[in-house]
Amino acid sequence: MVTDKQLSVGLCGLTFKNPVVPASGTFGFGLELANSLDLNTLGGISLKGTTREARFGNPTPRIAECTAGMINSVGLQNPGIEVLVNDKAPALRRIYGGVIIANISGYSVEEYAFNCARADACPAIDLLEVNVSCPNVHGGGMAFGTDPKSAAAVTAAVKAVTRKPVFIKLSPNVTDIVSIARACEDAGADGITLVNTFLGMRIDIRKRKPVIANKMGGFSGPAVFPVALRMVWQVAHACGIPVMGCGGVQRAEDVIEMMMAGATAVQVGAENLRNPMACPEIVRALPALMDTLGINSLQEIIGIV
């Protein structure tokens, strides 16, 4: 029995009891899973991406299976920022003691700032994750995360309206992830979450048309892990602010690998969709794996490679 392992990590003054965090969009508002697993085993929860107004999202089919992953084109379906701050986040706070991360989207710099100001006023929310990388909505999302100036403009605008830690969630669909991360850091970001999904596509060869109604969507799953890990390593070494690593994480080994690359916390995304119990299972597997690897505290291994 391994009992003396330190799983907790510190980040922007917040303590995560372990680094495992379900990624935004793959865990609803946490409440949907409250009866199926023990939420309090999780270090943090990143809530479903939220816009100012309620959105239905994209037409179906929104999901396409791939080898070692999947494409989603949900398109930021959400009930709007007021429901998040007045209903969802407080309801989760009543049953969950870990770090609650609001994931904020927008169609303009002003909307990002408005939503973050509303989230800042919500005591249930511990940290803001600003999504400038959604590949599934036009005229918003990813448009802000693929250009250093736009990413910096969103960062500066949201930092001006909140005292809570602000992480900017970046898109991997760029030629130079480091320049965008640095622009966010220079504009005052407290941390970087990376990566969001990779723009992808599937075609149904029998119907001769795209599987996804919106034609393209965000590809994620174990296939993207090496690319995500590379970007985490690059950004963690180029920036002085903490990183939450995300992309293709399936097991405790992947969490350790992401942390060695420089991630302070590690998000689990697509794996939740095939195994809703993935996050608690990973948390349970960590102490024995740490024992095998001679790790006493996860904090020690962050960025050692």
Binding site: F27, F56, G57, T60, V74, P276
Partner: peptide, 14 residues
């Protein structure tokens, strides 16, 4: 409908 999680938290089949 084509589903992701099947359990109500991914919003893939709305």
């Amino acid at each position: 409908e084509r589903m992701g999680c099947g359990a109500g938290f991914c919003y893939g089949c709305s």
